[in-house]
Amino acid sequence: MAASRDDDLRPDITRALLLLAEDPDAETRGAAVSTLAEFQDLAPAVADGLAGLLDDDYLLVRLAAAYGLARRDDPRTAEAIERLGRLPAGYEHDHRLSTLWRWSWQKENPGGAW
């Protein structure tokens, strides 16, 4: 029964996270976007919210937004990757970059074995 209650709460959680993703505090936005990126809610509002953050001043917000779009195979992922540009040292092994690289590779090699 707990799972059904979780499903009932999902729209409220999604709305709250989308509001927090617009918070003036970069750390709050970053945490909210990171959660949204991993969130299982595939509602268009979530993808639209992530896409709306691609110009954020805070790198972690842009990275999490791009990652969330890639996880949803959203066509705006290509734009998100372009907007990220070259990341500073220290991100080489970030799992989000691996996901973005894999998404790009799959788009460039349709039907290719991974």
Score class of each variant (00 low, 15 high):
L50N: 06
D57M: 09
D56L: 00
P75A: 09
L60W: 13
A45S: 14
R72G: 02
L50M: 09
A64V: 00
A70L: 06
D48P: 02
S98I: 02
D55H: 13
R72W: 08
L60H: 13
A89F: 07
L63R: 04
G52I: 04
R83G: 01
E82R: 15
L84C: 04
D56C: 02
P88H: 08
L100P: 03
R86M: 07
D56S: 10
R86Y: 04
R86H: 06
L59S: 05
L53Q: 14
L87V: 01
L60F: 12
L59T: 01
S98C: 09
L59F: 05
A78L: 10
A66H: 03
R83A: 00
L59C: 02
G52Y: 07
G68W: 03
A45E: 15
A66Q: 02
L50D: 01
L50S: 02
G68R: 07
D48C: 02
L87C: 04
A80V: 03
G49D: 02
G90H: 04
R83I: 01
A51S: 15
A70V: 01
L97E: 11
S98M: 13
G85L: 02
S98Y: 14
A43T: 12
V46K: 13
R86Q: 12
E92A: 15
L54I: 10
A80R: 05
H93K: 14
G90C: 03
L84E: 05
L84Y: 09
A78W: 04
D73C: 05
G52K: 15
I81E: 04
E92Q: 15
L69R: 10
R71C: 02
G49T: 04
H95M: 13
P75D: 12
T77Q: 08
D48A: 04
L63C: 12
D48N: 14
P75E: 11
G52N: 07
L60I: 00
D73Y: 08
D57E: 14
G49V: 00
L60T: 01
D56P: 08
A80W: 09
Y67E: 11
G52P: 07
L63G: 08
A64I: 00
A65N: 11
Y91G: 01
D57S: 13
Y91N: 03
D94V: 01
E79I: 06
R96T: 00
G68H: 05
L63T: 03
R86S: 11
H95W: 11
R76Y: 12
R72L: 08
A45N: 03
A45L: 04
H95T: 05
L87I: 03
E82S: 11
G85R: 10
A64S: 13
R62E: 04
E79A: 08
P88R: 06
E79M: 05
G85D: 02
R86A: 11
L53P: 09
D94N: 14
H93G: 03
L84N: 07
G49K: 11
G49W: 06
Y58Q: 09
D73N: 14
L63K: 03
L84R: 07
T99S: 15
Y58P: 05
G52R: 14
Y58V: 00
L60N: 14
Y67A: 08
R76F: 05
A64H: 14
A66M: 00
